[in-house]
Design a protein around this nucleic acid. Sequence first.
DNA 1: TATTATATATGACACAATGTCACTTTGTCA
DNA 2: TGACAAAGTGACATTGTGTCATATATAATA
Lengths: 204, 204
Amino acid sequence: MPTETFFKLPNEKKSKILQAAKKEIATAKIEEISIKNIVEEAEIARGSFYQYFTSKEDMLAYLIERQMEELKQKMEKELQKCNGEITEVFLTIYDCIIHQMVKNKDRKVYAKIFANVKAGEENYFLKPPKEEKQDFYEKYIQKENLKITSKEDFRIMISIFQAITSFSVGHTIKTKDFEKERQNLIKRLSYIKTGIEKGGSNVC
Amino acid sequence: MPTETFFKLPNEKKSKILQAAKKEIATAKIEEISIKNIVEEAEIARGSFYQYFTSKEDMLAYLIERQMEELKQKMEKELQKCNGEITEVFLTIYDCIIHQMVKNKDRKVYAKIFANVKAGEENYFLKPPKEEKQDFYEKYIQKENLKITSKEDFRIMISIFQAITSFSVGHTIKTKDFEKERQNLIKRLSYIKTGIEKGGSNVC
DNA sequence: TATTATATATGACACAATGTCACTTTGTCA
DNA sequence: TGACAAAGTGACATTGTGTCATATATAATA
């Protein structure tokens, strides 16, 4: 978290610093992000940076948190419009994420953040906002048509969709074939909905 | 790739260097891996390191490739035993990966590599060996019982399983509740097999 | 064997980036 | 106006990187 000093800064200066940080993130490889570049771009002294943030990581974490906040807000707005079908919900989430990574003014920042999500950590993009860890997905998804008998099962089901959605976003960014990858995701979701096995009336 | 010089080295020395590198990877945060530590541990001069590898990344890539080679071999051996059912195949893959990350002498190296797989790049752990990009999975999976009509669909189906398996490994390493997470994966696989939707005879 | 050529090994060095700190400037309030 | 606190500054010590001229070992040749 930035220091109190940072928050007390005039908005212009704050925004200039954040803008410089975003530019650096968008431009440099994540492991080569340099405070030197940021302070030069923001036209502040090196020492000042450390008066605002305790470290490079501190700054990055703050910036990521802000961007995710923005994403989550847009996402919630879109999710309101869903009819509660789980596949629709996750397609919406996918669309929101892709939109941020392609159309948003900070698209390169989003893309860089996403590309650097590690398997060993939670995916910010799919992690529910802090207050509503458990209930976030329940709010938007109708359970009536699902083969679940417990909350635990519901969570397991959600995790399937999270994994698929995350995977699909990754692929989309790599191939940049937005049409195709969206269709692929739809196929994946439909497979999950009705099963991959032949037989039974669950056939597409 | 290491230089010719490196490969010409006596096995003992080579192995001492690789051992030092592994120790560093197992110990340090990925972004803090230091050649300094490696050369000290391996008791070679700093300059020598650069005679063997062109850069830190070069060394890491080589080491990762070696470890993945080892993993893939073990994996193929286990896959031979499978009956061709897609869920069994991916459970086997999961078990192999977890085994390497928990029981293998280089378990910490494997765990560190896995934890640092990024969303923006292919997951080494699930990427087929270089020669057999396309056919790797086809070799072990029976398609007869699957609702697929094209190679393309088969690949999409595989990608679902890859995503789930990777996700499950990640969770397992995080929670360290091996029993539970394996059961969760089994549930996920079963959901994918028969679908998550109520109705139809595909119910569990 | 002596001599030359080639390959390997070495650590001092230049460079680059980090985080700190003593000092300066600015702002506030009695 | 003065004096105290808050914010700003850039030189500095530190740490790690990759390079390079030089030293040493190994092989090849006469």
